[in-house]
Each structure stands twice: as C-alpha cells, then as structure tokens.
C-alpha cells in the first residue's frame, strides 16, 4: 500500500540527494516527493510517498532516521491528516467545448489561470484522487501538457510532530536530551 512520510531535514546542499539515494539503494520506488522550506530557518520539510508494506515502511523510517541531516521522520499514513497536491493542466479548447470546460473547472473548484483562443490552463489543488479524476475528464478534449507538485501532507489538530522516535520502539534517554 502507499505509505506517506513527513521528513524534516536540515536545509543543506546534498540532503535531497542523500534521502533519495537511501530509497534508490534499497530498491524502493518513490511515488511522490515534495520538498520546501518550513517556517523555521534552516529546516526543510519533505513529504514522501512510497509503495511499501508495513515492515518495509518501518525499515524506511529507520533508515531515514539514521541519516545525520534528517531531523525527524513520521509515517502519517494512518493519521488523521490533510493531503494535498497541486496541478497545472493545459487543455485544448474549441469554441464548441469551451463552456463545457469552464463548467468542469467550476465543479472541481479549480481555477483558470491562462486562456488563449485554443487552450486554457487550469490550476487545481486537492487530494490525489481528485486531480486524477479531473485529468480523466479533460483527457478527451486533449491535454497539451501537465505538471503536478507531488503530494504534501500534514496531520490535523493543534500539534506538530515532536521528537519521539517511537517507530523504532525506542526512546532517547533523558540524559541525552538534557545535554
């Protein structure tokens, strides 16, 4: 099944490469990887989606966790969370179908961000399934090009992940934290 990880990393050159390499080396195929800054300077956040069973998911977490530049790893697959993806889709239009397309954009609560006589560019956000579905609807008109950001995710509620690497069934000894 698809496993979704939130990974906090130090914002340093080569860190993305390290993370990606740890997947490549063990033959895990990354379905989606999105990375960007957090509100804290020097810390980036990745959302990584991988096809894996439960045991493999733990191995992945533990391997990510081991990396010196990785600050925190969370498997949010089973959490109550918000998952979003953004896509830009350029669709071929004709005078006849233009209205139909505008209506579809409306239904999907997406936005038209560029219009020419022969095309529109649609911006859509939502869970992966919603975007897949819109793509399917646009397919018959002719998709000229498309780009997706990959998913980002966040747990619901007033908390952020804290440093408690329980996935390894272990705790950081208090003395170590006190240092």
């Amino acid at each position: 099944m698809l496993q979704t990880f939130t990974v906090y990393v130090e914002d340093k050159p080569g860190v993305l490469n390290r993370v990606a390499s740890s997947f490549r080396r063990r033959g895990f195929n990354i379905e989606s990887l999105a990375v960007g800054h957090t509100h804290k300077p020097g810390i980036s956040r990745m959302t990584i989606v991988v096809e894996a069973d439960g045991f493999t998911a733990r191995t992945i977490e533990a391997n990510l966790y081991k990396m010196v530049n990785v600050l925190l790893v969370e498997n949010i697959t089973y959490d109550d969370k918000v998952i979003r993806e953004l896509a830009l889709i350029k669709v071929r239009t004709s005078p006849e179908n233009r209205l139909e397309i505008f209506q579809t954009v409306e239904v999907y609560r997406s936005k038209i961000v560029d219009v020419t006589t022969e095309s529109v560019m649609v911006e859509v956000t939502g869970p992966t399934a919603k975007i897949d579905s819109l793509v399917e609807v646009f397919e018959p008109y002719g998709i000229i090009e498309m780009v997706r950001t990959g998913v980002i995710g966040m747990g619901r509620g007033p908390y952020a992940p804290t440093i408690s690497p329980e996935f390894v069934e272990a705790v950081v000894p208090e003395e170590a934290v006190a240092k």
Binding site: E10, Y65, V68, L71, P165, E166, A170, P173, A176, K179
Partner: peptide, 18 residues
Amino acid sequence: RPVRLPGYQPDLRALPEE
C-alpha cells in the same frame, strides 16, 4: 563542548515493555 547534531541521535534506549 560536546558536538551537537540535532538530527543525529546515536544513543537510543528501548521502551521498558520490551
């Protein structure tokens, strides 16, 4: 002073149940 690497936690300890 001891080296501080926030992402590196070499001394883990198991939970008491284990």
